[in-house]
Structures are given as structure tokens and as C-alpha cells.
Nucleic acid binder design. Structure first.
Length: 426
RNA sequence: GGAGGGGUGGCUGAGUGGUCUAAGGCAGCGGUCUUGAAAACCGCCGGCCCCGUAAGGGGCUCGUGGGUUCGACUCCCACCCCCUCCGCCA
């Protein structure tokens, strides 16, 4: 959500900054109209309530002293109806205002590139050099199927399209990658590891921004108030929903390795083969809750934390800053990490690191008491994949493949693989 | 799934229709005292919204949402959450 003060005082600036983000700017004008009505009615309602409260106090005094209060009670009865009318209208207006507010995306930072899609993303840096292959590199699904470690046909039997069965070395590699990432982030980067619920409620999804606009991207459990988490960002940023934290406790750094479930509605025809786009995948997530002053630096930090995984694994990647149009609904600024995939001769997203500033904190009422005292301030929240484990497995298979179809295990993962140096057939 | 108990401010905890403008305690902040600290004493001390340049004023807030009433922390209804016991279960 955006600040009401900002919407009220500088609606034109809001509209200018929202342009190109795929929002109907009419929403802002409707908000302005309703807000004006709300305030005029609120002022009247509160004056009426003041009258009622004073009258009730007088009645109470009379009753206590044994005097007759019938006249006073009759007089205050007229107020009651007017107050009810005002409150009813206020209720309607508040609901409409909130509905509008929940649909407005975050404002992009000033240094976010203009543009409506990924073609305007800005490449910040390119790290590592794609390996020169002396043979035609195979896709990970070819490799994995031939090695007998990925089974898409049986996954289709068990569930359907966009699922995979990991078998043997692939399953262990996934587990090794997750353990490697978690160790890095907890031991070296100072994150606290959590195992959150994989089901979540509507209030949490509303606060982190998946609802109400992106319901169709989610899986919802029938006859239940629960949804499957599309990312552990949801539980992690909701950890302190409705709380007032001490500034001295910030930044909070949380990491979690969880499954993620996405309906992928509307992605028909994209990445239909392999592990890139599944209904269920696993991810190590990084979340930080910071002060307002430190979130910009925290975005760079979280991006570096995620990138360290790729560097340790010696996977070539690049960092891009998403354009306005490509930046997600709740983000003010997003850095994507894109890993090199030899079979596609392209960099593909493997991590997305976002500074949501106070957007989620306002929705979820996450605040902190400034160290010097004073009013609570909205926290800033950041999230990043550190990394998408399934896609990292893809990158390892493809970048470390050998001419004979085997795959060399990157050094840092070998301790997690029982010393295994190479994944071969059988 | 069945039965019972309970949700009050950062924490604890009183309160069963009218100074609740929520007692008391703890924690926190300021002060007195002290070489300093502790103790003691005094004062301050929730959040949100609205009007106002400000000083200040008003409204809302005792799990959430409805209801009864001139008036609800208090009574009624629904829901959520927590605890105990039984059942089931990893």
C-alpha cells in the first residue's frame, strides 16, 4: 500500500510514477474523491459522537444522584440515528478506499529504468565467463532423463504437467544445494533459519501483496481457509505482522528452505519442458526487515548474498535491474540474478531480490520504535531468492556436463554429496 | 472430533452496565539524591484516525465482527486464536 498522506498531497506525482506499471490511473482519482468524502463525513460523525458522549455522561450523573433523566435520554435518541447513518456511510467508504489501496502497486525508485518490459532492464554487471564447449551442450532434461535422475513422465502420471520426480543423485544434489545455501547464509551472512508453515492464510497473502490481485497465481485448498505458499517470502515477511519492533533489533535477517507452489496460469507454452517452470519447486529465501534508512544498502547486500552462491559454484551470471514495467507489484526496485544456461545460450532468472520499502510493512503493520524514542515508524522489507534451488540444479547440470553425459559435482557441493565427484549413468 | 477454561496497554494483572479519561506492579524515559552506580522518592509513559500553522481539541481502540442500550471491558450472537482433558495420530 501507498501512504495515504502521499496519495492525498501529491496525487499527480503518484500517477506519474505509476505510469507504465500496468495500473489504471483512474483508481487514484477515485481514491481522491472518496477520501475527501470520508473526511467530511468523519468530521461530522465525530462531532455527533462528542455530543452523544457528553449527554451520556450527564445521564450517568443524574442516574447516580437519583434524578430523573427521561428527558435527556429522549433528546439523545435523535443523535443515535444520525450517528448510525454517518457510520454506515463511513464503513462503505473505508471498504472502497481499502480496496483501491490494495490494488495500487508500489512506486518505483527513481533509479529504476523506464520501460514496460524486460527489454528495458539494465544490466549492472556480468560475472564469470560461459564455458566453451567442445560439444553441443545438452538440455538439463535430456541429461537428467538419460542419467535416470529426472523423471518427467512418471511425474505426469503422479500429478500432471509441470511436475518432476527427482531420483537418486538429482534428489541428493537438490538436498546438497539447499544445505550448502543455508549454511552459507546462516553461518557467513547472519541469517536465522526458519521452517515456516507451507500453508498460509489470507491475511498474510494480503500483507505481502499476493492478494487480492494475484489470486489466480496461487493454489487454494478447497473447503479450507488455507493457501499453498507461492514463496516463503510470504511467511517470512509476515513473521512480525502487527508488531512494533525495537530499532536495536533491526535488521532482522531470515532464511528458509521451502517448497513453493504456483499455478502458472497464463504461462502456457513457456518453459514447458524441464525444471524451469513447475507447479512445485524449492527455494531458499532471504528476507530482511530493516529501518527506512538502511533498506537501499540492504538490497545491495541481499543481492550480494544471493550472488555469492553462484560465485562459490562458479556459475556465470549477470545482475540486472528490472525496468518499471517488469518490476513486481510490491517492489520499489528489483535486482534479478540471471544464470548462464548453455543449452539456451542465454541468461535465465535464478534469483529476484527486491526492496519493497514500506509497501508490505504498511499492509501488514510492521513497525519499529526509533532508538531515540518517538512514534513508531514503518519498517522496510526486502526479499531475495538465495537461490531457487531447482533452477540452480538446472544450472549445475548444464554447466558442468561432460561429453559423455556425466556431470561433474562442483567442489563446494561434494561434502554434501558424500564426496561424490561425478554423477554418471546408473 | 468431544468437553471445559481463557484472550485487557511492551510485559504482568485488576475490572461483571455509568468519574474506565482502564487500578496496581514490572520494564522504559526524565528528575531529585549520590563522586559514580544502586536503592529510595517525584513525574512522564499504548496505538490509529480527524480538525488545527501551532498550542491544543475530538473520535476510535480491552481477540475480530455484529447486536442490545441514552451509555458496553462488562450483557447477547458468530467467528478467530491460546490453554487443559479425552479421542485419534507422525
Amino acid at each position: 500500500m501507498l501512504s495515504r498522506d502521499l496519495l492525498r498531497e501529491r496525487p499527480d506525482e503518484v500517477k506519474a510514477r505509476l505510469a507504465g506499471r500496468g495500473v489504471d490511473l483512474e483508481l487514484v482519482d477515485r481514491w481522491t474523491t472518496l477520501d475527501a468524502e470520508r473526511r467530511s463525513i468523519l468530521v461530522e460523525a465525530e462531532a455527533l459522537k462528542q455530543q452523544r458522549n457528553e449527554a451520556s455522561k450527564r445521564i450517568g450523573e443524574k442516574k447516580r444522584t437519583g434524578a430523573d433523566a427521561t428527558e435527556e435520554i429522549a433528546a439523545v435518541g435523535a443523535l443515535k440515528e444520525r450517528i448510525e447513518r454517518h457510520d454506515a456511510r463511513l464503513g462503505e467508504i473505508d471498504a472502497s478506499l481499502q480496496e483501491l489501496e490494495l490494488k495500487l502497486p508500489n512506486l518505483p525508485d527513481d533509479d529504476v529504468p523506464a520501460g514496460v518490459d524486460e527489454s528495458s532492464n539494465r544490466v549492472e554487471r556480468v560475472v564469470g565467463t560461459p564455458r566453451a564447449f567442445e560439444f553441443e551442450p545438452r538440455t538439463h532434461w535430456d541429461l537428467g532423463t538419460a542419467l535416470g535422475i529426472l523423471d518427467f513422465e512418471r511425474a505426469a502420471k503422479l500429478a500432471g504437467a509441470r511436475f518432476a520426480v527427482y531420483r537418486g543423485a538429482a534428489a541428493r544434489l537438490e538436498r546438497a544445494l539447499a544445505a550448502f545455501m543455508l549454511d552459507l547464509h546462516t553461518v557467513e551472512h547472519g541469517y536465522t533459519e526458519l521452517i515456516p508453515p507451507y500453508l498460509t492464510n489470507e491475511a498474510s497473502l494480503l500483507a505481502s501483496g499476493q492478494l487480492p490481485k494475484f489470486e489466480s497465481d496461487l493454489f487454494r485448498l478447497a473447503d479450507s481457509p488455507y493457501w499453498l505458499v507461492p514463496t516463503s517470502e510470504v511467511p517470512l515477511v509476515n513473521m512480525h505482522r502487527g508488531e512494533i519492533l525495537d530499532e536495536t533489533a533491526l535488521p532482522l535477517r531470515y532464511t528458509a528452505f521451502t517448497p513453493c507452489f504456483r499455478s502458472e496460469a497464463g504461462s502456457y507454452g513457456r518453459d514447458v519442458r524441464g525444471l524451469i517452470r513447475l507447479h512445485q519447486f524449492q527455494k531458499v529465501e532471504l528476507v530482511q526487515i530493516t529501518t527506512q534508512e538502511t533498506s537501499e544498502a540492504a538490497l545491495e547486500e541481499i543481492t550480494r548474498h544471493a550472488a555469492t552462491v553462484l560465485e562459490r559454484l562458479e556459475l556465470p551470471y549477470r545482475v540486472v535491474t528490472l525496468s518499471r514495467g517488469d518490476t513486481g507489484f510490491h517492489s520499489a526496485k528489483t535486482h534479478d540474478l540471471e544464470v548462464w544456461l548453455p543449452s539456451q545460450s542465454a541468461y535465465r532468472e535464478i534469483s529476484s531480490c527486491s526492496n519493497c520499502r514500506d509497501f508490505q510493512a504498511r499492509r501488514g503493520d510492521v513497525r519499529y520504535r526509533p532508538a531515540g524514542g518517538g512514534k513508531p515508524k514503518l519498517a522496510h522489507t526486502l526479499n531475495g531468492s538465495g537461490l531457487a534451488v531447482g533452477r540452480t540444479l538446472v544450472a549445475v547440470l548444464e554447466n558442468y556436463q561432460q561429453a559423455d553425459g556425466s556431470v561433474v559435482v562442483p567442489g563446494p557441493l561434494r561434502p554434501y554429496m558424500g564426496g561424490l565427484e561425478r554423477i554418471g549413468p546408473g
